[in-house]
Amino acid sequence: MTRALYLVLGLGFTALGVAGAFLPLLPTTVFLILAAACFARSSPRLEGWILNHKQFGPLVRDWRAHGAIPKRAKVLACTGMAAGFAIFFLSVHPGLWLGLGVAAALGLCAAFVVSRPSAPQ
């Protein structure tokens, strides 16, 4: 039962990761890291597929080995968060506290991304 749950979660995270490759504000790598973790507990074949993927495999392997994120990915992630906040702020016109809350949450996420070691590109 647990293995099946991890498989379903892994497939869902993979679908989100694939969607993120085409949608600008949806992250790809984070979902593929989660998918690989789920597949490690459910499907070694699918885990191997992600780890050996030409585009995303090196990012997932760097994360597993060193908790590292390439500098380019850091810049893109922080830019995406800033753009997402700008779109949110300009389209929703949130109240002061909601705007500050979202800004704080995104700021903490950006700080985490920046704080990770830089992987070679």
Rank of each mutant, 00 (worst) to 15 (best):
residue 8 V to C: 01
residue 8 V to E: 15
residue 8 V to T: 14
residue 9 L to V: 00
residue 9 L to C: 09
residue 9 L to Y: 00
residue 10 G to D: 00
residue 11 L to F: 01
residue 11 L to Q: 11
residue 11 L to D: 11
residue 11 L to S: 03
residue 11 L to Y: 01
residue 12 G to D: 05
residue 13 F to T: 00
residue 13 F to A: 08
residue 13 F to P: 00
residue 13 F to D: 09
residue 13 F to R: 07
residue 14 T to M: 11
residue 14 T to Y: 02
residue 14 T to N: 00
residue 15 A to T: 12
residue 15 A to W: 02
residue 16 L to V: 08
residue 16 L to Y: 02
residue 17 G to L: 05
residue 17 G to Q: 02
residue 17 G to A: 04
residue 18 V to S: 01
residue 18 V to W: 05
residue 18 V to D: 06
residue 19 A to S: 06
residue 19 A to P: 01
residue 19 A to G: 01
residue 20 G to V: 11
residue 21 A to M: 14
residue 22 F to T: 06
residue 22 F to H: 07
residue 22 F to N: 01
residue 22 F to Y: 14
residue 24 P to E: 12
residue 25 L to C: 02
residue 26 L to I: 11
residue 26 L to M: 14
residue 27 P to F: 08
residue 27 P to N: 11
residue 27 P to I: 02
residue 27 P to Y: 09
residue 27 P to M: 03
residue 27 P to S: 07
residue 28 T to C: 10
residue 28 T to N: 06
residue 28 T to D: 03
residue 28 T to G: 01
residue 29 T to W: 13
residue 29 T to V: 15
residue 29 T to M: 10
residue 30 V to I: 15
residue 30 V to K: 10
residue 30 V to M: 14
residue 30 V to W: 12
residue 31 F to R: 03
residue 31 F to S: 08
residue 31 F to A: 04
residue 31 F to N: 13
residue 32 L to C: 02
residue 32 L to T: 01
residue 32 L to Q: 05
residue 32 L to M: 15
residue 32 L to Y: 13
residue 33 I to R: 10
residue 33 I to C: 07
residue 34 L to W: 12
residue 34 L to V: 06
residue 34 L to H: 09
residue 34 L to A: 12
residue 35 A to Y: 01
residue 35 A to I: 08
residue 36 A to L: 05
residue 39 F to E: 05
residue 39 F to N: 08
residue 40 A to W: 12
residue 40 A to P: 04
residue 40 A to Y: 14
residue 40 A to F: 15
residue 41 R to T: 03
residue 41 R to E: 09
residue 41 R to C: 06
residue 42 S to A: 15
residue 42 S to C: 07
residue 42 S to N: 02
residue 42 S to E: 04
residue 42 S to G: 10
residue 43 S to T: 03
residue 43 S to H: 05
residue 43 S to N: 12
residue 43 S to W: 06
residue 44 P to W: 11
residue 45 R to H: 12
residue 45 R to E: 14
residue 45 R to Q: 15
residue 46 L to C: 10
residue 46 L to R: 07
residue 46 L to M: 14
residue 46 L to F: 12
residue 47 E to Y: 10
residue 48 G to M: 07
residue 48 G to E: 14
residue 49 W to T: 11
residue 49 W to K: 08
residue 50 I to D: 06
residue 50 I to S: 11
residue 50 I to Q: 04
residue 50 I to N: 07
